[in-house]
Design a protein around this nucleic acid. Structure first.
Lengths: 213, 213
DNA sequence: GTCTATATCTCGATAGAC
DNA sequence: GTCTATCGAGATATAGAC
């Protein structure tokens, strides 16, 4: 929520919780493990955060906000759609690589919380992320209007780009098991991935002269 | 595992477990809820499946196998890469739409199980899914060799396609909160999605004549 | 095979000393 | 603020009657 006003112990707990919740999920996480990892005891967690539920909420809000703000930031200050796309893909993949558990952490919460959390989700997502699709959509429409790209729908395109980025991390265990070339050098595959997504999407959006279907 | 040799009660339990585990995850699921939903009692679950862990494993294996086999099936018997792509996207999205909890169910397990499950994962994935990337890769390489498409890497392209399909479902709560146009008509968005992915990818892969960058 | 009743245990939460 | 010790809810798992 704030993290500025945190005392030293509070922050130790928060960081430990971030770590444990990311790996184990809300239900899988154990207060004891969080305490151990923080180098403190369980009682202190309750002293500062009252309950597991509240601690989790604070961690989730923080993660979600960081995630959306980071995405939104990478969309600002680009001169062309082409530059925006390259910047977005590069920075998004770098962000995910720094925090590989991040996408599943968020997605899992959304599926488990479903109905109950829906309202809370909106409270977090909309303020932090409002800039995200707006900036992208605006840039997309401008580029489409000027003829720089085809209009396949801004939202649909953004979903495709994000999915293409996220799935590399979220689905990595499956991918690695199925594709030896990906498993053999993860870092190289990730770098290739930046170029691949940018290339495929940009090429797919650019109008072509009168030729094939 | 088999489901053929199941008795009637066994199958009731299995189906109830499939339902509950899909919605709640391994840790969130309660044996009591599975028993209630099966119209039986907890003791019987242990009689047939011994423990929650074993029951979960059987459900997970089944889901994973069905998922991979279904994907692999949609790749067979296509005459051109273009047809294969259209068929794959359409059938994959239909599969996910029928089982919207499926992607997160699998992804969650992979993240939680991580190190421990890695070996078991391979035992399930590789046999069931071996055909998947192989068939795609072969078709991709043939099309690339004949000049029908550009060679951006078969694995990278497959990851992009799968990610673009899966994220619509896995990330739906975020997407719906951020994009009013998606939220307003989910079914229509899903149908658009089929066309969008096919169009963007196919157009992005097709070589163009000498023109712009 | 199926049930009820219960044992056993894990974990979140609290009490209370310091 | 921080700790140890412990409670009590709720979950998995088992015993044993039918």
């Amino acid at each position: 929520m704030r993290e500025q006003e945190y005392t030293e112990s509070e922050e130790k707990i928060f960081l430990a919780a971030l770590d444990v919740f990311s790996r184990e999920g809300k239900n899988g996480a154990r207060m004891q493990e969080i305490a151990d990892r923080a180098g403190l005891n369980k009682a202190l967690i309750h002293y500062y955060f009252r309950s597991k539920e509240r601690l989790y909420e604070e961690v989730f809000s923080f993660v979600m906000r960081r995630y959306l703000l980071s995405l939104a930031a990478s969309l600002k200050d680009n001169t062309s759609f082409e530059e925006l796309l390259r910047e977005f893909v590069t920075r998004f993949l770098d962000l995910l690589n720094e925090h590989p558990t991040l996408p599943l952490f968020i997605l899992r919460e959304l599926s488990e919380g479903a109905a109950v959390m829906e309202e809370k989700i909106r409270q977090i997502i909309v303020p932090s992320g409002a800039g995200l699709p707006a900036v992208f959509t605006e840039a997309y429409r401008a580029a489409a209007a000027s003829g720089e790209i085809r209009d396949l729908g801004a939202s649909q395109t953004l979903i495709t780009i994000m999915g293409a980025c996220i799935y590399f991390f979220a689905g990595y265990p499956v991918l690695a098991a199925l594709m030896p070339d990906i498993a053999s050098d993860r870092d190289a595959s990730l770098q290739e991935r930046k170029q691949h997504i940018y290339d495929l999407v940009m090429y797919g959006l650019k109008p072509r002269l009168e030729s094939e279907s």
